[in-house]
Simulated assay, not measured.
Amino acid sequence: MTWPAGPRWMWKWLSILAGALIYALGLNAFLVSNHLAEGGFVGISLLFLYLLHWPLGLTFFLLNIPLLWIGWRVFGHEFIVLTTGGVVAVSLFSSLTARIQLPTHDPLLGALYAGVVTGLGLGLIFRSGATTGGSDIIARLVRHRYGVSMGRTLFSIDVCVIGIVAVLIGRETAMYSLVALFVASRVIDFVIEGTRRGKALTIVSDHPEAIADAIHRQLERGTTLFQAVGGFTGTPRQVVYCVVSREEVVRVQQIVHAADPRAFVVVNDVHEVLGEGFTR
């Protein structure tokens, strides 16, 4: 077996290490110091910390050992190697940053801080192609064996962990922890998608060529013309489809209105926009 090398592999590891450090800081500085919880295996590790005073980093690492071994046998080696790196880095940095405490007077403010910082760290780890193990490996195993979506499995695990937190720690702690989880999920999406997000416009008009030509000239964006048939009228016509940045949506709408005030326009969010004009 040959291990990948080169700049791409190096940047993956740097991203994992940076993300693990930021994530560990978010855990200790905001979650632990404000006595909040998390979902997944980190949430379980925090319960052991609060109830039995077991070290967060060590508990998290021990919980992941059997799952990493199973994942190694089931999935590709590159994924498990990167994920093992993420687990080890999070465990190590969680121990090294354990003394960093930044408690807030308002638990809600602490939850918001925790969500932003942990979401940033996890986003960097996920963007590198790794995970922090635990629930992510279980979700992959369940999808591999039973075909259940990863999102559904992850959500179920988080609900169970937060439910246990509500029973053992308190309902207020569970609610503030949910706030932190929600904020973290939004930040993760932003970090992973970054500037590759855009808007797709589907334009139904009697003047498709004029609209497409104006978009080409004024925005220097490409368009695609689809042949379509009106479902109600049965009239054949062309539909203009284009993807632009979020800042350019209003300009496209102005172009369409100037060419055909009666045009029908649908605007959708799109993710991972790759290609000319966006990212290479």
Rank of each mutant, 00 (worst) to 15 (best):
V183W: 00
T223C: 11
A29L: 07
S94W: 09
V239A: 09
G6W: 11
Q253T: 02
R99G: 15
T84R: 07
E220F: 09
L112A: 01
L102F: 15
K199E: 05
H105A: 14
G275A: 06
V187N: 00
D106I: 02
R237N: 05
L178C: 14
A5D: 13
I137C: 08
F48H: 00
F79H: 09
W3T: 11
F30A: 04
W11A: 11
V273F: 03
L96V: 08
L62W: 04
G6F: 14
V267M: 12
Q254A: 12
K199A: 12
D213T: 15
F232I: 09
S245L: 09
V74R: 14
E248H: 04
A212Q: 11
V273P: 13
T223D: 03
L56G: 02
A200F: 02
L112S: 01
P66F: 05
R246P: 00
V270R: 06
A20Q: 07
Y113P: 00
A98T: 14
L25N: 11
I255N: 03
D106C: 07
V42W: 00
V116F: 01
Q238H: 07
L201M: 09
W11T: 05
S45K: 14
T118E: 01
G26L: 00
F93Y: 11
G194M: 01
G222D: 02
W9V: 08
S245V: 04
T59Q: 07
D158K: 03
R251N: 10
G151H: 06
V250M: 08
A174V: 07
R197Y: 04
G170E: 08
G234L: 08
V256Q: 01
M10Y: 10
T202H: 13
F278P: 06
H35L: 12
T235Y: 06
E247P: 01
V183Q: 00
V273E: 05
L25G: 12
V148G: 03
Q101S: 15
I211T: 09
E78G: 10
T83W: 00
P107T: 06
D189Y: 04
P107C: 12
P107M: 05
R186W: 02
S177I: 13
G71K: 02
A228R: 05
P4R: 15
A98L: 14
V204K: 10
G277V: 05
V42I: 12
R99C: 04
L82C: 07
M150H: 03
F75L: 15
A200P: 03
G40V: 01
L96C: 06
Q218V: 11
V267Q: 10
A214F: 06
E272T: 03
I188V: 15
W3R: 14
V179F: 15
A24C: 11
I137W: 06
Q227T: 08
A24H: 12
A5L: 13
V179E: 03
L58S: 04
V142S: 11
F41G: 06
V240T: 08
